[in-house]
Nucleic acid binder design. Structure first.
Lengths: 235, 235
DNA sequence: GCGATTGTTTGATCCAGTTCAAGCCGCGCC
DNA sequence: GGCGCGGCTTGAACTGGATCAAACAATCGC
């Protein structure tokens, strides 16, 4: 059973969601892409820009580095990483993607994805074809502005992250990472104090410019100080 | 003597430039913002979106971190840094701005500048008021796309830089920085092999996540190996 | 030109985080 | 169950770059 492709509205104005995949789905109204998906909500009834929902199995790629930008994506359920793979097998993880986050925006510069997005667990992703986004942006000025806002937000975040990498020591990077993740889970209605940490130590390291060993040591240290309590895949 | 404010076109389709300020001005046709400044070039005669040209003295700020986004900027002549100042006096330099570069795009996320731009030498900067950019983007679809392209390009660059910061050792950061700067000067019609390096060691360090001492040592090392030759403010 | 100020180079020491290595834990699979 | 594998933790030694410090070179104001 797959989700329907290209029906006018995938669903009516969604305020409540049906029992979701693994209980981890985000409501469309809470999604970063909501203004794009439902650009004409009040004015002209529901127009849904999303044409496809894709399911991704753990480890599957949403898009590849170097592939042309065919669509914008919104994470509906699950957890992904957006990463820039290096030639040597190493990689830098640009950002972890939670339900409600937008993905693939960095391809607007060249029309080609400079990074790739990989599912860290089974995911559900909404897809707005690029041509459709372009057409809608032409017709609806506020949508163009929304798109600029999304990309600009990513830019500011990326700069902020680069600043974190240069100006802060390892333990501060890890603590800020935890606080940031806690906040983001919180914004999605989950507990800020007990949240999932579904990526591996290695991947946290690749995001923060540290080795897996250092990340592990720092987390253990935080735990021994009583600041956090670690469990399998959670804090 | 200041440049005129808000005349219909500041100048006719500029292919040649008059003897420029310190001989370092970029032609409008080579500017990243050109498609925005002259959106209707062929079709409807010259419409110039730029309303103001500002001169900045060395050390002057183009915009401040935390101030609302009132305009987009294009560097016409001179050299600036875009930096994120920290509370402790330290800062991270996001990017150095050469003639033809766009600035202030990272404010599209929140409408507030997360960074500031400071002139490293006397500069001339074109300014497109934000409201004007918005209006033009509504009227001219290609302009909206151009704006997305500019912001998306900055995003990809920023991610690439963050990757450089995490995945490469000091000497590689410096060499890549030099190669990149060389390329950028080259694109502007200057020599790729003998170019200006108008920022201080300290500032190179703040851009690359290194101390001034390390930058100086690495540059001296490159010179002693015969890879580069350093002169006052140049390579 | 002279002295002050600001930026650069070089040297010596130190330490945070890496690297290498070994054990551990949880989980899936035969 | 027991075995194996992938991820996590912990330990010990090493090292790249930071830090501290001092000499040096340009530039500016007078």
């Amino acid at each position: 059973m797959d989700l329907p492709v290209n029906p006018a509205p995938l669903e009516p104005p969604p305020t409540t969601d049906k029992p979701a995949m693994r209980g981890r789905q985000v409501a469309c109204t809470a999604c970063a892409m909501h203004p794009l998906c439902y650009p004409l909500s009040a004015a002209e009834g529901w127009l849904n820009a999303v044409q496809t929902r894709r399911r991704l199995a753990r480890g599957e790629r949403l898009y590849r580095a170097g592939s042309p930008q065919s669509a914008l994506y919104a994470v509906r359920a699950g957890f992904l990483k957006a990463c820039a793979p290096g030639p040597d097998g190493g990689r830098f993880i640009v950002r972890f993607l939670l339900p409600g986050d937008a993905a693939g925006l960095d391809a607007f510069g060249t029309g080609v994805h400079p990074t790739e997005a990989v599912a860290l667990e089974d995911c559900q992703v909404c897809e707005i074809p690029r041509y459709r986004a372009e057409i809608l942006a032409e017709g609806i000025p506020s949508l163009g502005a929304q798109l600029r806002k999304l990309i600009g937000g990513e830019l500011a975040r990326s700069q902020e992250h680069a600043s974190l990498l240069t100006r802060h020591a390892a333990s501060e990077r890890v603590s800020r990472f935890l606080v940031d993740l806690s906040r983001r889970w919180g914004e999605r209605g989950y507990s800020r104090s007990a949240f999932r940490l579904p990526m591996r130590r290695q991947e946290i390291g690749e995001h923060l410019g540290l080795t897996m060993e250092t990340v592990s040591r720092i987390l253990s240290d935080f735990q021994s100080r009583g600041w956090i309590r670690l469990s399998r895949g959670g804090v």
